[in-house]
């Protein structure tokens, strides 16, 4: 066969074989990857809304997903809010859990962040940051306590603590949470949180 035909044949064959291999690999790994993702969300929901037996997504937008967490009798025991926003260095993804009336936050967990290691990255640390996010009252909106305090007792119930040397990352996390809370509240008022059950 002449050169031109050969070029086309070779490229097509290479392409086909590649496509076939990739389809096989794609199928084999697809389930596992999806499973990993689910597991991550599930674990996070379980952490921020303790006692969750099952959950369903009520609202799914690009940077915000609200999950309804349900207990033993399939009753609503809280919401788990998954939110994405800009941090100091890159994007921060987090999840926080609230009670069904959106009166308080149970706790917060950071899913993805690329903040400065050793400083901003401490937002994932329980001791340095996350413990101060437990049982916060959110009716009046949360505020950041600066300069940082040493113990939880020193914080007002609607305050969260800064990380010394990482004020901006701490503030960014707060901004993401406050912003999402606003959206969740308005969604609730519009009755959009009823979703699937």
């Amino acid at each position: 066969m002449n050169l031109y035909t050969r070029m086309i044949v070779v490229l097509t064959v290479v392409g086909l074989i590649s496509g076939a291999c990739l389809s096989v690999v794609g199928l084999l790994t697809r389930e596992r990857i999806e499973l990993n993702r689910q597991k991550e969300i599930e674990e996070a929901i379980g952490t921020v809304v303790p006692g969750t037996k099952s959950y369903s997504a009520a609202v799914e937008e690009k940077d915000l997903t609200v999950y309804k967490a349900k207990g033993e009798q399939d009753n609503l025991i809280g919401y788990a809010v998954y939110a994405r926003g800009t941090g100091f260095q890159d994007i921060i993804t987090l999840m926080f859990g609230t009670d069904p009336d959106l009166d308080k936050i149970n706790s917060l967990t950071i899913l993805e962040q690329k903040e400065t290691p050793g400083l901003g990255a401490k937002i994932t640390d329980g001791q340095a940051f996350l413990q101060f996010w437990e049982d916060r009252e959110i009716n009046q909106g949360l505020t950041l306590r600066k300069p940082a305090v040493d113990t939880k007792e020193e914080l007002a119930s609607s305050e969260v603590n800064t990380i010394t040397g990482a004020t901006i990352s701490s503030q960014k996390v707060l901004d993401i949470v406050n912003f999402s809370l606003e959206q969740v509240r308005s969604l609730k008022n519009q009755g959009k949180l009823e979703g699937e059950d």
Partner: peptide
């Protein structure tokens, strides 16, 4: 659902 073909 062809995400895995992204690189190629």
């Amino acid at each position: 659902d062809l995400g895995y073909l992204q690189i190629v």
